[in-house]
Design a binder for these strands. Structure first.
Length: 465
RNA sequence: GCGCCGGUGCCCGAGCGGACCAAGGGAACGGCCUGCAAAGCCGUAAAGCCGCGGGUUCAAAUCCCGCCCGGCGCUCCA
């Protein structure tokens, strides 16, 4: 049985699916107007992991991740660069999608764009108006928060409490009936993109796109809604209120991942202390996998720290995985990662421990401990020439694959590989002739090319540093 | 101010009432293996006891109370 922490009930509880065997997952995607940073990557990785694990457990998952391609930030950026909002959004969406691919984040089944759902949003706002839970002002259409029962359930605060701190950071709009009321539809301002509506031209308000798209694609009472915990209020709280205002059951389960800190404080656009995903990825070929490992090493609900030292240690761990893959394949054991179906050769005890850890609110740190523990056992078995080696190594690859961590048995195929193979062969010939001087010189040559040679009982194997 | 989440070894990070397991990763040190390496294996480094002070209990890193410190949220930030 799979359990997950639910923000509404504030406890880890069994995942109660709308339909047995099927999971509908809506994860909040980015607003595309700039480079995605490491925090976006953590978030995407969290839901990619959830999706992969549910699938590994045999569930049929429908994963939706939106792209918000119209909002203040995009408008501002377009204005600054003297081009259209659409151009800005298209550019940054492409950067985002590409960066996620490099992180081995699986493409969601649907990646809806807000601007393609405006009709549905207008329709939704209309229904909220019909229900009497919204009103218009000169600046737009507002949801009357006190008409929504349990408005603050996600943040665990009641209306008075929320009101007391409303305006703590931003001044309130006098035209609203209540400071907590929020915009469903924003009346058009000059020079801003707008769409027609019964309340005049304007654009979508508080993430009404997420409601329209999640309910539109996944249907009422879909299973899981996820996002960064900075979205709990007001973003998700308002989204939820929009659905509740018209009596439509919303997400059954709310999952929120914690933030990512750099030097102890939240990495964010506004603080300017962020590092972009592309930058991190370009720094080292192993970084994509290393960052995923780093994310997995911290539980998703705990703030994680990132710095160069931690990236280096994660890379070292990835290299241990790859080293096992090289040893295994040199020993004639097939390396298959990311196998969807359980590998029949896998070690039962380890798989069971892994599953128990993951079933309990995605216990990736412990799950990873199982993987590395098994890796150690596999190496020992390999040293002893034990027949257990095959099962243990297969288990490591299978479980790493379930977490989306790719394992690389070595570099073959590229153009210059022929030359490398040649050097490796010449070195081996020199070794056979006990000409250590020549052998070492050749090894230095390879090293200069960024290639490491390892001598195994089955002959030399090499890989890139 | 209000709400939420944390404070565990050199670093990261599990554990959330009971077994000598305070996991796992990284770093360090010694040894084995190796022509030498790399990879791997074996072992070690006193975690003076898990932020501080009380309490509950036969038993607490794990529960309760207070305090200190850090992080996040309180209108458009994953």
């Amino acid at each position: 049985m799979i359990s997950l922490y639910d923000t509404v009930t504030a406890e880890v509880r069994p995942l109660a699916l709308r339909e047995p065997g099927k999971v509908s997952l809506y994860a909040c995607g980015p607003t595309v107007y700039d480079h995605p940073h490491l925090g976006h990557a953590r978030s995407a990785l969290t839901y990619d992991l959830l999706r992969r694990y549910l699938e590994w457990r045999g569930l049929d998952v429908r994963h939706v991740a939106n792209i918000t391609d119209i909002d203040d930030n995009i408008i501002n950026r377009a204005r600054d660069e003297d081009r259209t909002e659409g151009e800005v959004a298209v550019e940054w969406e492409a950067v985002y999608v590409d960066a996620m691919a490099r992180l081995d984040v699986l493409d969601p089944h649907d990646r809806p764009r807000a601007t393609e759902w405006v009709t549905e949003m207008v329709d939704f706002v209309g229904r909220i108006m019909d229900a009497g839970a919204a009103y218009t002002t000169p600046t737009g259409v507002y949801l009357r928060v006190r008409d929504v029962d349990g408005y603050g359930d996600l943040v665990h605060r009641d209306l008075d409490d929320l009101r007391a701190s409303a305006g703590a950071r931003v001044e309130v709009d006098e035209a609203k009936e209540d400071p907590l009321d929020f915009a469903l539809w924003k009346a058009a301002k000059p020079d801003e993109p707008s769409w027609p509506s019964p309340w005049g031209p304007g654009r979508p308000g508080w993430h009404i796109e997420c409601v329209a798209m999640s309910l539109g694609i996944l249907g009422d009472g879909f299973d899981i809604h996820g996002g960064g915990n900075d979205l709990v209020f007001p973003h998700h709280t308002n989204e939820r209120a929009e659905a509740l205002a018209v009596g439509r059951p919303f997400a059954r389960h709310w999952v929120h991942n914690a933030m990512l800190n750099i030097e102890g404080t939240k990495m964010s656009k506004s603080l300017g202390n962020y590092r972009t995903v592309v930058e991190m990825l370009d720094e080292h070929p192993l970084n994509g996998r290393a960052f995923r490992l780093l994310v997995l090493q911290t539980h998703y609900r705990k703030t994680m720290e990132v710095n160069p030292e931690l990236m280096a240690s994660a890379r070292a761990a990835i290299q241990r995985l790859d080293a096992l893959a090289r040893r295994a394949s040199a020993a004639g054991i097939a390396v298959q990662t990311g196998a969807a179906a359980a590998d029949p050769r896998a070690d039962g005890g380890a798989v069971e421990a892994f599953r128990a850890a993951m079933d309990d609110d995605l216990g990736t740190p412990q799950a990873l401990a199982v993987v590395f523990d098994t890796l150690h056992r596999a190496n020992t078995a390999l040293d002893r020439g034990s027949t257990d080696a095959q099962a243990l190594a297969a288990t490591v690859f299978e479980l790493a694959g379930a977490l989306g961590v790719a394992v690389d048995a070595g570099g073959r195929g590229a153009d210059e590989d022929g030359a490398i193979e040649d050097l490796v062969a010449r070195r081996q010939a020199a070794r056979d002739a006990r000409d250590w001087g020549t052998a070492d010189a050749l090894r230095d040559e390879l090293s200069a090319l960024g290639v490491v040679v390892e001598d195994t009982p089955a002959g030399p194997v090499w890989h890139r540093k």
